[in-house]
């Protein structure tokens, strides 16, 4: 790693570390107001529908997995699974989790186990509800598996929150044919575009990381959202600053 990269990474990590500490302390006593996100507002309806109709929810990691560059996304998806599965433990149809990478299976099992534990329903937890759908080169084999899952398990709603490409369109197609809602978000741009166009409830950009704040209504996660908002504003200001500096330095030429 060259010196410039070392310095950049070190400075970015330090800035985020100190901002995280400072904002956490400053906002400890303050209530954090969250902006409405349609996809998260729909979660209680989707879980309610799953419980009432005894149709399981299907939550997918896609290619998000620990040990790769999607490790933290996989953690965010796990949080999403944990918070959503908590609301369906009282139903007869347990939530089904699928992952394209085997490394995500232990994460999924742990998230589901914690969800059942939190509701004192550990005896109902079945590890086989976390399933490996081998992705293949373009994740199309996994998408085919997810399409079959719809008819096999009579899925109530598909929640694709992880790393996906254009294969979301295949799941969206089967969900539409069976009149089942689809909530989708991806860290990949092609997946984002397809999710925005075809999903009933799309999650855009960093919204995937906010499950703890919105579904869990957890203060710790809400503070994280507040910090993220502050960081976003700072980044925007930094971009504007660099732009103004460049314009003034070059004399607008």
């Amino acid at each position: 790693m060259d010196t410039i990269t070392q310095l950049s990474v070190f400075v970015i990590l330090l800035v985020i570390f100190f901002l995280n500490i400072v904002i956490s302390i400053l906002r400890r006593r303050q209530a954090v107001n969250l902006r409405p996100i349609e996809a998260y507002e729909a979660i209680p309806d989707l879980t309610g529908l799953s419980v009432e109709a005894a149709r399981p929810l299907h939550i997918a990691y896609g290619n998000a997995a620990a040990g790769a560059d999607t490790t933290l996304l996989a953690l965010a998806t796990s949080e999403f699974i944990n918070q959503t599965a908590r609301q369906t433990t009282i139903g007869d149809a347990p939530t089904i989790v699928t992952a394209n990478e085997t490394v995500a299976i232990p994460l999924g099992v742990d998230s589901m186990r914690r969800a059942y534990e939190s509701q004192n329903a550990t005896d109902q937890f079945n590890e086989v509800n976390v399933r490996w759908y081998p992705g293949g080169e373009n994740s199309l084999a996994a998408a085919a598996g997810m399409m079959a899952l719809q008819s096999d398990e009579n899925i109530g709603a598909h929640l694709l929150v992880g790393s996906f490409g254009a294969e979301i369109a295949l799941v969206a197609d089967i969900a539409h044919r069976q009149d089942r809602p689809l909530l989708a978000g991806s860290d990949r741009l092609e997946g984002q575009a397809v999710a925005y166009a075809l999903a009933d409830y799309p999650l855009i950009g960093d919204e995937i990381f906010q499950a703890g704040s919105y579904i869990g209504n957890n203060d710790r996660f809400k503070r994280r959202t507040a910090i993220l908002d502050t960081l976003r504003w700072l980044t925007a200001l930094a971009i504007l600053g660099v732009m103004i500096f460049t314009l003034t330095a070059t004399g607008g030429a």
Binding site: I12, L13, I16, F17, N20, L72, L73, L75, A76, D187, G205, D206, I208, F209, R224, I227, L228, L231, R232, T235
Partner: peptide, 11 residues
């Protein structure tokens, strides 16, 4: 946005 959220989660 995704990079910021990833970094913050990591930290």
């Amino acid at each position: 946005g995704i990079a910021l959220a990833t970094l913050l989660t990591g930290v």
